[in-house]
């Protein structure tokens, strides 16, 4: 009989409040609740962690690495880059 290793869930981990959630890997789990528990044991047993997200891998939509045009910036777009302007630095907000 063929085996089941369950569905896969992608795991996103937040190390501290204020930081973004980062993708750290995946777990095989039967359902979202168990996926969270398994993500805790696999990805937060050493790392500091304040929050985990899991999402079914099959629910993720992704761009195609082989589509060269999706992110192309062929023409000059420097007009929207702060570095392209000579205004005094104090017009920028202080870095937090």
């Amino acid at each position: 009989m063929s085996d089941t290793q369950w569905e896969t869930y992608e795991v996103f981990h937040q190390s501290r409040r204020g930081r973004p959630h980062e993708h750290v890997g995946s777990v095989h789990a039967p359902d979202p609740e168990m996926a969270l528990q398994m993500a805790r044991d696999q990805f937060a047993r050493r790392l500091d962690c304040v929050s985990l997200w899991v999402v079914r891998s099959s629910d993720i939509a992704q761009t195609d690495y082989q589509d060269p045009n999706f992110f192309s910036q062929v023409f000059d777009k420097s007009y929207r880059d702060p570095k392209a302007f000579d205004a005094p630095a104090r017009t920028e907000p202080a870095e937090s």
Binding site: M1, T4, Q5, W6, P30, D31, M34
Partner: peptide, 19 residues
Amino acid sequence: SHEEGRWVREALAAKAKRA
């Protein structure tokens, strides 16, 4: 151990499918 764990994998999958 793979064979002994099979019923667990199947039961959790079945339960999730019903849910």
